[in-house]
Design a protein around this nucleic acid. Structure first.
Lengths: 205, 205
DNA sequence: AAATGTAATTGAACAGTGTTTAAATTTCAA
DNA sequence: TTGAAATTTAAACACTGTTCAATTACATTT
């Protein structure tokens, strides 16, 4: 059955080539401004071929979207070695933010863009599996913090959401260029500075 | 000069009609999916006419964008009557969030969408005038809070950004449907609940 | 009232888009 | 070598933002 196998691999390889081309184009010029023809040009095939590998443009987006979460989860691995739960929580915030700042377009795809997410969520009623994993890890870390006496009087689910919202807010305002309202000489480091203010607060809870 | 005046008014009226049509279409189906032809259809003119009133589609977006900030600033007026700066800060957060939840598409246009913002910022080098106003008011409120002894050890500019990021994060994750990761029965009120957790924290600072 | 000049408006055209589909080509087992 | 199956293509469809020459409408002047 070696031949069937090779054909399988060839098919898989072309699918991969489409994804690589789509990713670089999406990150280069944005999802909306990347056309199917652009992608086809880059892999030197005709536009039609793409529809044999993906239902539509959204499905390409979705595939890349999933890849982004794998990347983020991988970065999060180091957290296992941080014993103190409060330190772990802060390290998690730093990893989240550095991922976002190092891969702003991918972050955009994962957490800000709206375009094809009906597809992501509604399909398979699996409640946005990729995002759920990281959120649950945050939630567990908050639980651990509470077990050792932090966050007294707080409600863990809503608190987790609030903390996520804070780090997301810090990076997403920056990515979408709403930082121009802060003093010009503070703009360059405003995300890190804002995170530091947040840590000052966490240290008191 | 009555005739020239009337023509002036007519011109202004058609401009307004374009904006009204564009706004309802943008909020109905999104900016990207609204075409110039859609707008022209709704006002019963030919597509070309729109380019006599606006340079391009971005300029229409920009005009609506400005309108949104007027709306928000108007809602903020009541804050003048809140004497206690810490209460004023919290009231500001509540107004911000209720504005966002009541006008999610307008909020999207103002703070989340990226599309035509190069235009908004780069033109006139005026540092995003509309957004700057509300941020400065937040910044002033933080200063007032510090004057009466709150936020000791904090840096006001970065703290203001962090607080804005938190409320923005709360609403923008919700608007872009990233809330499906929280427990299903908590989803409906997660923005309000998250805000409450934030207030619990502010009360201790 | 008729002619003129100007501003408003149109509709066709251009170059692009996502997607579908019939046809052509290639591949490969029998 | 043949014939069927899989792969790939090119053309078409209906859309997009934008431009622009031509037309229409109309206030002003003669």
């Amino acid at each position: 059955m070696g031949i069937a196998d090779r054909k399988e691999r060839d098919k898989e390889e072309l699918r991969e080539r489409i994804l690589v081309a789509a990713k670089s184009l999406f990150l280069e010029k944005g999802v909306e401004k990347t056309s199917i023809r652009n992608i086809a040009d880059r892999i030197e095939y005709s536009p039609g071929i793409i529809y044999h590998y993906f239902k539509d443009k959204n499905e390409i987006f979705h595939a890349l979207h999933q890849g982004g979460f794998l990347q983020l989860m991988e970065k999060m691995q180091v957290l296992a070695s941080v014993r103190n739960p409060m330190e772990r929580l802060k390290a998690m915030g730093s990893i989240y933010i550095s991922f976002a700042m190092e891969n702003p377009d991918m972050y955009d795809l994962m957490f800000i863009k709206e375009a094809p997410l009906d597809h992501v969520f509604n399909s398979e009623h699996d409640h946005w599996k990729e995002g759920g994993g990281t959120f649950n890890y945050l939630r567990m870390t908050i639980d651990n913090c509470m077990e050792v006496g932090h966050f007294k009087g707080h409600e863990p689910e809503a608190l987790s959401y609030m903390i996520w919202a804070t780090v997301h807010g810090l990076v997403s305002l920056n990515i979408r260029k709403r930082c121009e309202v802060v003093l010009p000489h503070r703009q360059e480091n405003i995300v890190a500075d804002g995170l530091e203010e947040f840590y000052k607060i966490l240290d008191r809870l």
